[in-house]
Amino acid sequence: MSGRVHPATAALGALPYAVMALVILVDLTAGPAAGFLPLISLGPAFAGLTGSWRRTALIGVLSFVLCLVLGMYDGLFTGQRGHTALLSVAGVTVAGVVAAVMRRRREAELANVRSIAEVAQRVLLRPVPRVAGRLSVAVSYTSAVAEARIGGDLYEVVASPYGVRALIGDVQGKGLEAVETAAVVVGAFREAAYDEPDLTAVGTRLERALERDLPDEKFVTAVLAEAGAGPTITLLNYGHPAPLVARPDGAVAYLTPPRRALPLGLTAHGEDGPEPYDVGFAPGDQVLFYTDGVTEARNGDGQFYPLDERAGLLKEPDPQAAVDAIRADLVEHTGGPLHDDAAMLLIRYRTA
């Protein structure tokens, strides 16, 4: 592993010394009348923003000594100017040391939060099986909150006695409440996918779980899928963006449900649940499930990401490479960080 220091880090480390050297040069050339000597306190000030408290204290001591020597050279201690400059350096050094200590504490807290988030991600969004029966599976997840690692999007794949069952969803809202809701839905799905022989019954179990554990009308758009032994895949869409199917001959289509249904968690409105619908699923076919963070991502001109036009990227032989290619293209489309969580789940019917 290379021991090289990043150029930006090296530049920040050298900044306090460069500032002090510049102040010394100006003071020696322009003379004490220019009044630049107190600016030597910028050395420990910049050190406190980037370095440890020990390094900040050392640079502060160096700055104090330089200020003392220059003040004596300029004859400033016959009045108040030299003492004022020394007090400025001492005060800024103390402030810089305190800032460095507080910054290191915040960095340690952030590291702990990252570790907890990684554990939570492994529990909530554990790795899906790469191969499940006749299917190959790949996922991609990008949180809009970079430090959080996880958000309100969810997915799961379960190899049940009734076929391979998959779930992808998007929770209303953000933050810890969204993560809590996602945990309820994923936990209920993992249990119901093994127990219920009917996909509609699995959806009903998810509804009951949300109604029981989250009574504040939180809702989740979701798609449930089941690939059994037959040449079809069954879908159950709760107000979620329609999955995209890509055929071996290059044909691409959105698998729109026969009737629009409300999201999970809104059964109190009295409308009927979604109707399950079957779609042809043969060797070489693949279905891409995604959240709206993918299709609603905009570029600099305000144009949405054209997922169906990018379906050619799914021709990658490795399913995970195909999903990663879509994700890379999505990031290139937006030209920067995503503004919403984006999850993708690809299910491919393996060929011989």
Rank of each mutant, 00 (worst) to 15 (best):
G228L: 04
Y194W: 15
G96W: 06
A30C: 10
I59A: 03
S41F: 03
A192N: 01
D195M: 12
E207T: 04
R212P: 02
Y238Q: 00
P248N: 14
A47K: 07
S2D: 05
E217S: 06
D272K: 07
H333L: 12
A45K: 03
A183L: 07
R165Q: 02
A138F: 05
E275A: 10
S140K: 07
T234M: 08
G152F: 13
T232H: 14
N237T: 06
E177N: 07
I233S: 08
L338G: 12
V26A: 10
P257C: 13
M20N: 09
V19C: 14
E147K: 12
D195P: 03
V171I: 09
A222F: 00
L154I: 08
L39C: 03
W53L: 05
G250K: 03
K315D: 14
V202E: 01
D27S: 15
E211W: 00
P248Q: 11
A328W: 06
L12I: 08
P258T: 13
A227R: 04
D195A: 14
S63R: 01
A33C: 02
K174F: 14
V97G: 07
Q320I: 04
A90F: 03
D340V: 09
A261M: 05
E309V: 02
L66H: 14
G96I: 06
T334Q: 09
L176M: 06
A45C: 10
P215R: 12
H6V: 02
L68S: 07
A34C: 05
R205A: 06
V97D: 04
